[in-house]
């Protein structure tokens, strides 16, 4: 039972703490949310009034909730490819540098250490301030233009602020992932290719990118999940005391507002929202693994 040299015991000793933490802080809350989502649970975690699928029905009838899913899709459509291309580009550029690699790596990675809240506030009050003395507006005015209302609604310019702040914050991290991926590619492959007369674009297209598939899958997955969980920069850039505009409202912000807004606690609706979002993200993940993993498995089978 203890296994050879107490192997099973050691296995338990190493795995148990992590597993117990995971169970208490992840699995139990998810299960509890699922339970709550079928009850009218206002201000209690031990509800008594069973309401079936009413909370789910409520959310799907809620135009703001449906809009928030669209906001997420729109956000993901911009931020995922943009971060992917920028971080891959930076990684390729830095990887070929002869000098100062460590310096530039740090320069691009440092924003990662800034909190989303702080960055959002800087973006909101300094760069994208809608008043005439906001940084960008001052510049526009010095060129003879009118101040632009960046975040106030009535236009779509708030996306510029939201996407640029996230890009700035996260691009360095994914760049590091790609650099790690690039370092995994054996030099011999490139040498062989250059002997065959391949260079530049063809090496990138036929060696680097295919070899980075593993890193790419991880990066895209993480980018999607992070975009899905977006809260801080939206909340701090667009929200005001007493109100959050109906536009630029991702799912988590909307759920927070209807479940906890105004000092109330509507945990039933909150739980139902959590379940919907969890299933969407699981489906996304499965679809992506399927789509990106397909091409990879075929050669393996041939080899086998």
């Amino acid at each position: 039972m203890r296994g050879h040299q107490g192997r099973n015991l050691w296995f338990l000793a190493f795995v148990a703490p992590f597993f117990i933490g995971l169970a208490i802080f992840v699995y139990v809350p998810i299960a509890w949310s699922a339970y709550l989502s079928f009850f009218d649970a206002r201000n209690t975690v031990n509800p008594t009034r069973f309401v079936g699928f009413d909370n789910y029905r409520y959310l799907f009838n809620d135009r703001l909730f449906r809009d928030s899913l669209k906001v997420f899709v729109l956000f993901a459509v911009f931020i995922v490819p943009l971060t992917y291309v920028c971080s891959l580009g930076l990684a390729l550029l830095l990887n070929n540098l002869k000098y100062g690699q460590a310096f530039f790596r740090s320069v691009f990675f440092i924003p990662m250490a800034v909190s989303y809240v702080i960055a959002a506030i800087v973006w909101r009050f300094v760069f994208f301030n809608g008043a005439r003395f906001g940084m960008i507006n001052s510049f526009i005015r010095s060129l003879g233009g009118d101040p632009v209302n960046w975040l106030g609604g009535g236009n779509n310019l708030y996306w510029v602020a939201l996407i640029s702040v996230r890009l700035w914050l996260q691009v360095g991290f994914y760049m590091i992932l790609f650099i790690a991926g690039l370092n995994q590619i054996p030099r011999e492959t490139y040498e062989a290719a250059s002997i065959d007369g391949a260079s530049g674009w063809r090496m990138l297209r036929f060696i680097t990118l295919p070899q980075l598939r593993g890193a790419s899958v991880a990066v895209i997955m993480l980018l999607f999940i992070n975009a899905f969980q977006a809260f801080d920069e939206f909340y701090n850039m667009l929200g005001s005391i007493g109100s959050y505009p109906p536009y630029g409202r991702p799912p988590l912000v909307h759920l927070y507002l209807i479940a906890f807004g105004g000092g109330q606690q509507n945990l039933g609706v909150g739980g139902a929202g959590t379940m919907i979002l969890t299933s969407i993200i699981v489906l996304f993940g499965l679809a992506q693994t399927w789509a990106l993993g397909r091409g990879q498995e075929k050669p393996k089978k041939v080899r086998a």
Binding site: I118, Y235, G239, S240, S243, Y244, G261, G262
Partner: peptide, 18 residues
């Protein structure tokens, strides 16, 4: 204080302190 239902009661503290 001046915020009733349908609002970000927490906005102030969240925005200010993160």
């Amino acid at each position: 204080l001046l915020i009733g239902g349908g609002s970000l009661a927490a906005a102030a503290t969240l925005a200010a302190c993160g």
